[in-house]
């Protein structure tokens, strides 16, 4: 078998996909800080956000190193415009109510857990080491989200309705996470990454098990909306970046 060689740009783009997912969801979740339904949930959501931003720092630093232009995680997080972000559309969706946030978290953590588990065997040392660290955190996020899917789904009429509405918002963004393209085929061929489509069966069985516990039915999924991996985002990402980037862009290079 011929060893597939990945270009610098392909590796950088792949690391940006991984890092931007964590960064954007981490930033989005941190909007709950001080607003969650209870102090325990406030702490939970803020701590999940913290884990994600920590992962993003490691992954984006690796992306900057692969790129070789001297950009670190901060430069990539605060210095890129919306079209340069490579996150999937799911993570940039607005928080909505707590039910909608939990639906998004469950869908994303299920995907990310399967992904990171595979990437611990990556032939790229940085990817393997970062994911070996991150997969333990993601597993915990998934447990938290699964608990809440069951609790809300099997709770009151209102909690179930809100959770179902939250999932209804997000179903159209599930397909994108498992879509293969030229880049994912190249990183998979180099044993650095994984083909997203191969993660789908693990995702499906988890979804089925947790929905079963929650007494919920999985609806027929709507047609997927895609484009995030190429930089075509929903209008929500621009607003999120405006909040996240405004201080470092107003005062470039400022230090505490």
């Amino acid at each position: 078998m011929t060893e597939a060689v990945l270009s610098t740009d392909q590796l950088t783009q792949y690391l940006l996909r991984l890092g931007d997912d964590s960064l954007v969801l981490g930033q989005r979740l941190s909007e709950w800080c001080g607003h969650a339904p209870s102090i325990e949930l406030d702490l939970s959501l803020a701590n999940v956000a913290l884990d994600l931003i920590g992962q993003a720092t490691l992954l984006l630093n690796a992306a900057g190193e692969a790129e070789g232009q001297g950009r670190d995680a901060d430069a990539l997080a605060f210095g890129r415009d919306v079209m340069s972000f490579r996150n999937c559309l799911l993570v940039e969706q607005p928080n909505g109510d707590f039910g909608q946030t939990i639906a998004r978290q469950f869908l994303f953590s299920s995907y990310q857990f399967a992904l990171f588990r595979h990437l611990t065997a990556s032939s790229n040392t940085a990817v393997a080491e970062i994911c070996a660290k991150a997969v333990k955190e993601t597993e915990y996020h998934l447990q938290l989200a699964s608990d809440w899917v069951v609790r809300l789904g099997d709770g009151t009429d209102e909690s179930r309705e809100r959770l179902v509405a939250g999932f209804d918002w997000h179903w159209r963004f599930v397909g994108e996470m498992f879509e293969d393209d030229a880049l994912s085929e190249a990183v998979a061929a180099a044993d650095i990454g994984v083909l997203p489509s191969t993660l789908k069966s693990e995702f499906d069985s988890r979804l089925e098990a947790v929905f079963n516990d929650a007494g919920l039915e999985i609806p027929e999924l709507p047609r997927s909306i895609t484009g995030g991996r190429e930089g075509h985002h929903s209008e929500h990402l621009g607003h999120l970046l405006a909040v996240m980037q405004h201080i470092p862009r107003t005062y470039p290079g400022a230090v505490w």
Binding site: E40, L41, L43, S44, N47, L50, L144, D147
Partner: peptide, 12 residues
């Protein structure tokens, strides 16, 4: 009480 506590490494 809660899967997360005062820091990422602790639960309540």
């Amino acid at each position: 009480v809660s899967r997360f506590g005062s820091t990422p490494c602790k639960a309540q």
